[in-house]
């Protein structure tokens, strides 16, 4: 029983950290730009496909692929923000959401055109593939690796936002755009930069997913984006700390749910999301407005 619970916990942690990798970019973009980006799931998907292709081109060097793949997606992110999203900031919410939704449709089909509509099996990694025994049962090494990467990303983002000049500017712009532009911050350029950075995080998540999920499918962005929304909402829209903790909760909830009450596993996730929105719209870990 204990072994089983430990394993369910570990699986939950790795799932949670995965969602966190995607939700971090989503949350950052929402926090600064105020746009909830449906296309973030597409960046995740594009990240996975680019990494996969680069992996093939560069002779199985996963790390190089992981470095370059997301950078390619950043170019896409730049185009999306600079030439489209920028013009809808002043518009009503439906237009903003639907613009990003249009990109979801677009990228989903583009992936089908370029890589084919079927699933692609992904290669395994030397060194990080295989399993090691934990309490008498095998656990995938790569999942442990992901459990390690998640907090690293969190610490990195915390350091960036709290300790650097850039972070101060970003925080200033997210709390008061007009004030920031009054003290000489070029807000549009900053927004573009933040969007690209958020895109990079999403695409990194996708790249790291290549060996993890095993199969690449054109719809893979759509399932993760809803998980990321749930996490971002539970943590409080725009709060990175909240998103991290929210991802842990959702990861554990879903892995325990799948193990013990598979029928209501998805239901639980969404009821938690609704409950948070109703009783603590600022998020479980946010401070009251």
């Amino acid at each position: 029983m204990l072994e089983s619970i430990v394993h369910v916990c570990l699986a939950g942690l790795s799932t949670g950290m995965f969602i966190w990798l995607v939700a971090s970019g989503l949350t950052l973009i929402f926090g600064v730009l105020g746009v909830l980006n449906f296309a973030h799931g597409s960046f995740y998907m594009l990240g996975a496909y680019f990494c996969y292709t680069l992996l093939g081109l560069m002779g199985d060097n996963f790390w190089l692929g992981l470095l370059l793949g997301p950078l390619c997606v950043c170019v896409v992110g730049f185009v999306v923000e600079r030439y489209f999203l920028r013009y809808v900031y002043p518009l009503a919410l439906p237009y903003q959401l639907l613009l990003t939704f249009a990109f979801v449709l677009l990228f989903d089909d583009l992936v089908k055109v370029v890589w084919g509509a079927g699933s692609i099996g992904s290669p395994t990694l030397p060194g990080l593939s295989g399993s090691i025994p934990i309490l008498g049962r095998n656990f995938p090494v790569y999942s442990l690796f992901i459990i390690g990467v998640g907090p690293l990303v969190a610490i990195g983002m915390w350091a960036l936002l709290e300790k650097t000049w850039w972070g101060r500017i970003i925080r200033a712009a997210s709390s008061d755009r007009e004030m920031a532009s009054a003290i000489g911050v070029r807000v549009p350029a900053l927004f573009t930069a933040v969007f690209i950075f958020g895109t990079w995080l999403g695409a990194m998540g996708g790249g790291l997913a290549v060996p993890y999920v095993g199969l690449l499918t054109p719809g893979m962005g759509e399932s993760i984006i809803i998980d990321a929304f749930v996490v971002a909402v539970i943590g409080g829209l725009g709060s990175l700390k909240g998103a991290f903790l929210g991802a842990l909760i959702i990861g554990l909830l879903s892995s325990f749910g799948t193990r013990f009450i598979p029928t209501f596993d998805m239901f639980l996730t969404f009821i938690l999301m609704a409950a948070v929105l109703l009783w603590r719209p600022q998020g479980l870990f946010g401070e009251a407005a």
């Binding site: 237009y95 639907l98 613009l99 249009a102 990109f103 449709l105 677009l106 583009l110 055109v113 509509a117």
Partner: peptide, 19 residues
């Protein structure tokens, strides 16, 4: 096969210019 692609484009045009 790719009607979503075209719809994405149409949607973009509507949102960007033909609200």
């Amino acid at each position: 096969q790719n009607w979503m692609l075209w719809f994405g484009l149409i949607l973009l045009i509507i949102i960007m210019g033909l609200r």
